[in-house]
Design a protein around this nucleic acid. Structure first.
Lengths: 142, 142
DNA sequence: AAAAACCCTGTAGCGGCTACAAGGTCAAAC
DNA sequence: GTTTGACCTTGTAGCCGCTACAGGGTTTTT
């Protein structure tokens, strides 16, 4: 299987496959006489694994680590679990931060009444005000 | 006020200030005889505004747009509001995606029982299994 | 007068791709 | 048999929002 076929089957860009090879997430495959990469089914399996981890938003470094761990079957499973949990915590933290953001943006949007000019815009007022004080970002009536 | 003082007051890195100037988010300030940047209080105000928008995770391009809009006071406030709402929607979408991720990672972590070896690790099994079903790996390429 | 702290410009790096340039190879259409 | 076009190769640069470093000059403190 050449690189285009592999990429198509995994649903990724050809460039991404080469990138993963450079980044040691895929083994360098054999080459044809003319220098084309020749992949086997194991490469596809590996690529799908990497993509699935990426769909879970894991950084490439962690995926690399996961692959390392899985090569040495004597390693304790706890290490794998720790990695996943650590990642989970990162995701949770980010989600919570975004949730807080949502609240602020909603409040901000509520400052704006249609038909106004920018000169009287509650949003801009609020943004500037908040930037000033860093404190009471809560309640300008208008 | 020189760049270090400005940066300290806004709580940012000196490099970031120069970066914002390059990116047209801060006006280029006057220079001293020896070429040092000389800032006034308006620069600080502007920088705080930019930082506050960044704390709301707005991309620099949007902050630039916001600054443009606020310069022309005749512009309708609706444009400001639209910008904020669009950003809000982006944040919401991302938060929802992370929420879904959280669920998946929790399920994954639950696969793992302490004390196992990697060879029997439920997480890795699960990851590989999921990767299989994901992209259509079903055509055996000759 | 020396040392420390500050400033300048320019450049490169992070992550995870994506895109482009400039070429080589291979199958099929004319 | 040649010419298209799809595919492949390497190398390089761009995206975002910084951050850091190199290699200098200036100002302030000791």
């Amino acid at each position: 299987m050449r690189i285009g076929e592999l990429a198509r089957q995994a649903g990724v860009d050809v460039q991404t496959v080469r990138y993963y090879e450079r980044e040691k997430l895929l083994d360098a495959p054999a080459r044809t006489a003319s220098g084309y990469r020749a992949y086997g089914p194991l490469h596809l399996e590996r690529l799908n694994f990497v993509r699935h981890c990426r769909s879970l938003d894991m950084p490439l470094a962690e995926i690399r680590r996961l692959l390392e761990l899985s090569r040495d079957t004597r390693v304790s499973c706890d290490q794998v679990n720790t990695l996943v949990r650590t990642h989970l915590e990162r995701v949770q933290a980010k989600r919570k931060a975004l949730q807080a953001l949502e609240g602020q943006l909603e409040a901000l949007s509520a400052q704006c009444e249609s038909g106004h000019r920018v000169a009287d815009c509650g949003i801009l007022e609020e943004l500037i005000h908040a930037a000033h004080g860093e404190a009471c970002a809560c309640h300008p009536s208008a």
